[in-house]
Every structure is written in C-alpha cells, then in structure tokens.
Design a protein around this nucleic acid. Structure first.
Lengths: 332, 332
DNA sequence: TTGAAAGCGCTAACAC
DNA sequence: GTGTTAGCGCTTTCAA
C-alpha cells in the first residue's frame, strides 16, 4: 500500500503538503494540488485509518448498539440500523456494530475505536446512562429514558402517538378501546417506547372517558390470538384497537375475523408501525408511521452536532403523523 | 487516557514487557505479570486501537456487507448479522457495517480499517467477486455464486433444500407441486439462493415426474395472494407447495384457506425459513430451517482460518434438515 | 504557499 | 525473563 510519503515524493512536495491538501486545512496552490491529486490517483493512495486515528485522535467511526435478538420488530430495528448507517455514510462516518453486552461500550470507547455512540433499545431507567454520560465520546440515544442524564435523545413521540391513535378512534365514535402492545418481556424491562405508548394510550382514554384495556402481546401469531381472545373475554364490546406490535398485527386482524368481528366492520384498528408494514397487509391499515430510517439519520446528525459542540445535548421527539387507510369505521 | 508507557512506569517495567504481557507472545514471570495487571487495572488502561493497528498491521475488525434494504426477509438477514457479530465477538473481532454501495469495500480495505470481509446477498454472477479476490484481506461470501473465483463461501445448501422439500412431498404422495419463491426482483438479479432453490425444486420435480410451477412472489400479503391465485388458476389440482418466502408464508396459507383449500387438508406446505418463523404461525409449518445465525458464525470461523492460512479457501454448504410439523398430509 | 520534524501509542526485532 | 529502540503512517506545530 502506498503511503503519504510515496505520494509526496511522486508529487515532489512534502508530506505535510499532501496532508493539508487532503484535509483542506490550509491553502494549496492549484498547481501543487493538481500534482498531488495526480500522484494519489496513480498510486491509488488511501490514508491508513490507524495512523490517522493515532495522529488526529479521531477515527471517523460511530459505534451502534442495536438489539440483535430476533423476534421483536426486527423490521423496525433494521430500519433504524439502515438509517444510522446511511446517515453516517453521508456524514463521512463508518459504523461499528456493538452487541448488547455490558463490556463492549467501554471497550470501544476506551480503546478509541469510535468517536461517538448511538444506543438503541433504551429502557426507562437504563443502567447504561451514567456510564455513557461519563464517556469522553458523545452519544445519542434512540429512545427516551425517564431521566436522560444530560444525554441527547431522539425518538418518535410515542406518548403523542398513543394519544393520537386514541383521539382518532374517539373522534370516530369509539368508546371501548384496547392497546395490543409490545411483548410482556419488553414491557417488563420498561423499554422506553412501550412505556410511553401505554402512557399516551391510557392518558387519552381517561381524558376521553373511554373504557380501556392494555394487553402486552407476544410477537407471534399465538401471542396475537391469545391477546384477541383475552380482549374479547374481558371487553366483549370493544370496537377500537390500537396495535403497537408489528409482528402480531396481521394475526390480530385475522383473529378478530375468525372470531366473527370484521375489520373495520365491527372492530376498528389503528396500528403504530413502519409504513411499509401498514400498507402491505391484505387490508391496508390506518396507522401512525414509525419513521425509523429518518430517526436513525437524525441520530447521526445530532452526533455530528455534539462532536462539534458537546454542550449541545437535546431531546428530539418526532411528532406522530396518522394516515387514515380505511381500517377505522366511523360510528357517528 | 492511560498509555502503555504509564502502565510500564507504574509497574516498574519496560513498555515492551507490558506489550508482551498483553499479547502473551513471550513468557513473563508471574511476579512481573501480577504487577502489570495491577497497574492496568488501576489505570483502567486499554490499548489504543489505532496505534496498535499502525504498529501491527491488524485491526481486529471484520467488515460486513449486508443488504440493509427492508422488505426482503429482514428476519433472516438480521439473524445472519447477529451470527456474524456474535461469532466475531467470540473470536475477538469487532464488526464494521458496510453499505451495499460500490466504493465502501475499497475504502475500508485500502485504508486498512478491516482485516477481513463477510459479504452477504451474493448474486449468481456477482460483479464484486474479482475485486474481492484481488484484495489483500481475505473474504467469505454468504451465498454461492456460479464461479466462486477461489473465494470462500458458506450457505445453506439451497439446492438440496429445494430437492429435499420436493422429495418429502413426493413421498407423501403429492404429484402436482409449486414453489412460491423469492420476489421477482430477487430472482431477476440472480441472487444465489433463489437460483439454487429453484434448481433443486425443479430438478427433483422432474426426477420424480411431478407436474410443477415456480412462482416468484412479492414479500407482502398482496404478493402472496397474487401467487396463490395464479397458482390455482394455472395448476388447479396442486396439492403440494414449497414456500421459500418468509414474509409471504402466513398470507399464502390464509389465502389457500380463503380459496377453500385447507392446509394441510387440501394443500400441503413445506416452508424454507428460519425455525422461529415456522413455529410461531397459527398452524406450525413443516419446514427446512435456514440456520442463519449458525451460518453467520461459520463465516467468521472461516475468516479466522483464512487469516491464519490464506490458501484455505473452501466452499461449505450446510445440509438442510427438514422438520415435519404437520402441515404436510400423507395422500398414501 | 510550503517544508521540516516532533510526536501520536503501540509492536517486534534485537540485545542482554 | 526483561529492556532498548526503531519504526508503523499520519497530523500539526513551528519556521520559512
């Protein structure tokens, strides 16, 4: 591999001139720059990442801690990852995937493998927060813990999403509502988005005087069936359902039909899921989009902002947008 | 951050002794080793990754090129990624996620950001192969191109999987079969696994004298419905169906039922998908498992082998294993 | 507008 | 069993 010295020699300039030509940190005459670029092209030169990291104390790599376990809305997670990776690419960064295990954050940060971190799957009272805040490198959470500890966060405003779904159903005349939510395991770890979704749902139901029920639901056909059956047993006159569980969604709808409740004839459904999920079902479903890819990109933007000015920590909640697709029936 | 020099000073030894204690590349007396470990612990020392990469010409990072676009069996892809990441972790490597775009492989390899590459979503006649083979760093493909160019490959033996599914149906007395396969776009790019699946399916049908039809199928409910309808129009007396399309699978089964063909009463189904997909449907489905996570780990093992001895290139095809779960009816 | 040279922190000869 | 030291390839003062 060619080194910067090879380039310098070939272009008849000094190493530092090549370096500055590359970084643009000082003016280079057009003629010199041309010779350097020619040499670089001829040699196929690329700066050695390790050497650059050593000398400059930056790696241009972002660490991404994503829940890689399967089963739970893989689709959404994948979209977040895609958003982070493409956003990072556009900003000139690469992405190092980290497993969920304890040590990996400490390892990659203290060995200077990454300049910054994006952390997904945040819990309401996440144990990692103090450690993250103590880091030399800035981090952005995808999710919103109860106390952000001065860390930057970005997420869909799930509280508003839950409330907005309910208000949409209330406006259509529904008064007996249910939330078919995240798997029990997710709820029990107090995962931030599940918590907020529930809060928004319950709050709006209470404000609107609606009877309501919250059902944690396994991300499987069986889970969907169980929840629908429980729901019909406990709240037989339910007419409006909010589904925040991408995997269960199609099975929830089928199960309602099997139980003789047509959607949207007898039961209206509002889903909270990525748009492609809502539109690719047999019957298009009215939904609040989880703009996962966009949020991933925002996370990277926030990170580059923080690297410029570490004091810029902020919380950004993307407002939910509900799209009516006909799975809600107006009882008015 | 503490440096190796800080550790050396604190332990009263030389830098190289610390380095050797860390790498185990030469014997260190127990007493010295103890003092070094104490110093490391007290200082919270971690080697600077860039400095190490510069001096040793290795990064302990593996690049992973995964198709991050959504829609196409995200679940499977996620499991591959999880397998690669956990396998890499166990082998002492981190994983750098690369986007599908042209330049990224050249960028990370020629700047020495990675020691090796795992490449997913391989096409039958993949344009990237010559470039991969010319690299300084070894690579492993997940998938099997027509001509591996001397590169290492690992995948489920989809040819066998297709054949095995057909033979299972033939053995149960079915004589009119269909393959509900990957999306047309995937097929048209000649994605390796789709190609091989079709080959295995068709080959075994012909060998067994079965009437057969292959239907590329969109990864959506609509796609599933369209394929089932086409199938029933073109091959009304079909009794055995192989489904190699995780997303379509549940909708295929529902659609058969809507069309008055019970599964497995009138139509028998063998799926090719990850086990968790086959078992979490309303009716458990007889399937050939895609052991994605395991294959991801094997890919990493092969990579570490290649880094030890670059001449060890090989093709590994994992034999399919069919699990009967009751969605195939014996017509005997 | 350019060059010389001092590190950045680590590894791996080489020497004892 | 341990120490000395010459790089690895780049960035960035300092000097001109």
């Amino acid at each position: 591999m060619a080194t910067i010295e090879d380039v310098a020699r070939r272009a008849g300039v000094s190493q530092s001139t090549v370096s500055y030509a590359l970084s643009g940190k000082r003016p280079i005459s057009a003629a010199t720059r041309a010779r350097i670029e020619k040499a670089i092209a001829e040699l196929g030169y690329r700066a050695h990442a390790g050497a650059r990291a050593l000398a400059s104390a930056r790696t241009d790599v972002i660490g991404l801690m994503a829940p890689l376990r399967t089963g739970v809305d893989v689709n959404v997670i994948m979209q977040f990852v895609a958003g982070v990776v493409t956003g990072a690419g556009r900003a000139g960064y690469d992405v190092l995937m980290l497993t969920q295990d304890e040590g990996s954050v400490a390892r990659v940060t203290s060995s200077s493998m990454v300049d910054a971190l994006v952390v997904m799957d945040v819990e309401d009272d996440d144990a990692r927060l103090p450690a993250l805040q103590a880091l030399r490198q800035p981090s952005v959470l995808i999710g919103l813990p109860a106390d952000p500890h001065g860390l930057s966060c970005v997420d869909l405003d799930f509280t508003q999403a839950g409330a907005s779904a309910v208000r949409h159903l209330l406006a259509a005349g529904h008064r007996t509502l249910a939330l078919i939510g995240s798997p029990r395991a997710v709820v029990e770890r107090h995962t931030s988005y599940a918590e907020r979704m529930t809060r928004g749902f319950v709050g709006a139901c209470e404000a609107g005087g609606a009877t309501h029920l919250v059902l944690p639901t396994d991300a499987s056909a069986a889970g969907a069936v169980a929840s629908v059956d429980t729901l019909l047993a406990q709240l037989p006159d339910v007419t409006g359902v909010v589904v925040h569980n991408e995997v269960a969604l199609p099975h929830v709808i089928s199960r309602f039909r099997e139980r003789g409740r047509d959607v949207p004839g007898e039961v209206s459904v509002v889903a909270v899921c990525p748009e492609n999920v809502a539109t690719s079902l047999p019957v298009p479903v009215t939904s609040i989009d989880i703009p996962a890819e966009g949020i991933g990109q925002i996370a990277v933007d926030m990170l580059t902002g923080l690297m410029r000015d570490p004091s810029m920590a902020e919380v950004r909640l993307v407002s939910p947008r509900l799209t009516e697709r006909g799975s809600v029936r107006n009882l008015g």
